[in-house]
Nucleic acid binder design. Structure first.
Length: 358
DNA sequence: AAGCCGTGGAA
DNA sequence: TTTCCAAGGCT
């Protein structure tokens, strides 16, 4: 590692910056209370950190408010129906997080008496909690001297030390650099401070080096390489997959929906029955015998590793229809907000046409 | 141990 | 329109 000023100097500078600039978030305690030693509720820290995995603060805010209003404690969440938690998570993405969230709530309730463990090692055993989240909870909720390493911290460390090794190869080196700076005083505030620095000043594009508390000590700032770091290995192109979604409406308005199995893409979520999603033209698989009308419009949606073009077929069925797949859900109990985004796009395109179908 | 797993906003 | 990216974890 490159020669740097004392770690204590750098962490103190950053904490001063944080005390003056910390952003307000629903899961944070007010600055005055924080400076007088108050810690946030571990449940709120856990919930927010899981929601924030690969997800922006702006996207998380309203979900966090809705979850804590509906389930104020981890024990409340443990008693929830699976479908309610999955429905409340709909639209936030990475749905394995919601499945593991509920599993974790039940483990904490049943095996830890409703209290989150306070050590990195114990937290790491829980479903959905990996190295980052275990460090974040133990540092932020319990003020343990753990080092959080997320995308922000990797970027800040790569620039501070002008490390050009591409990710993910550079991960161990960046982790060591971050650990060397973690103070024993206020480690929880420090953890949030580094991430706030990355989110607001040391940003991926157009970093605001001129107002950075570490400006004078940043190697990439001196070298003029900040905007190009961290280096990353090239990504693979996304293939285009094709599929057909089937929207059947019963005579009473009920809609044919299907709960997806608890694994893989959109696992555990509600959706329209459909074909496989393949790069070749998919085989039609209508879920119920009916007069299907294929719409010209298609739903387009991009997932993490492929683009999807989804053709939409609609049909009206009699009350005695017997589907091979899915279950009719009464219209009054159907909430489009409980669908993952791609399925909501399908509904938005189908709904107008269903009215004129008969 | 690479690949899988969502979404919406910014540029 | 397309690409990139965000407080990662699981298998």
């Amino acid at each position: 590692m490159r020669d740097t000023p004392g770690a204590a100097r750098l962490s103190a500078l950053l904490l001063d910056w944080y005390d003056a600039n910390a952003r307000s978030m629903p899961w944070r305690v007010a600055p005055a209370a924080r400076l007088s030693g108050q810690r946030p509720d571990p449940y709120a820290v856990w919930l927010s950190e899981v929601m924030l995995q690969q997800t922006t603060v702006a996207a998380v805010r309203s979900y966090f408010e809705a979850f804590t209003a509906r389930w104020p404690t981890v024990t409340d969440m443990a008693g929830a129906e699976d479908a309610d938690v999955m429905g409340a998570w709909a639209g936030l993405g990475y749905y394995a997080r919601a499945r593991n969230l509920l599993k974790c709530a039940r483990v904490v309730t049943d095996e830890y008496d409703g209290r989150f463990p306070d050590t990195h090692a114990e937290l790491l055993k829980l479903p959905g909690i990996g190295p980052y989240t275990a460090a974040a909870i133990s540092a932020i909720a319990f003020d343990a001297p753990e080092t959080v390493v997320d995308g922000n911290v990797e970027r800040v460390m790569a620039r501070l030390h002008d490390i050009h090794t591409p990710l993910p190869t550079a991960k161990p080196e960046l982790t060591a650099a971050a650990a060397a700076l973690t103070p024993s005083d206020r480690p929880g505030d420090y953890a949030q401070a580094v991430m706030d620095l990355g989110a607001t000043i040391c940003t991926p594009r157009n970093p605001a080096c001129g107002i950075c508390p570490w400006m004078a000590f940043c190697a990439a700032r001196t070298a003029g390489t900040a905007a190009a770091l961290p280096a990353k290995l090239p990504k693979k192109p996304k293939p285009i997959r094709l599929g057909i979604a089937y929207v059947a409406q019963r005579a009473d308005g009920a809609l044919l929906l299907e709960r997806r199995e608890d694994r893989g893409l959109l696992g555990g979520m509600l959706g329209w029955p459909g074909s496989e999603w393949t790069e070749a033209v998919p085989e039609p698989t209508p879920p119920v015998d009916a007069e299907w009308l294929l719409l010209e419009d298609e739903a387009r949606h991009t997932f993490t590793h492929f683009h999807l073009r989804l053709k939409i077929a609609i049909a009206s069925t009699p009350m005695n229809a017997a589907p091979d797949h899915g279950t009719f859900i009464e219209r009054s109990r159907f909430r489009p907000t409980e669908l993952p985004t791609v399925m909501r796009k399908v509904f938005d395109l189908a709904r107008g046409r269903l009215e004129n179908l008969g």
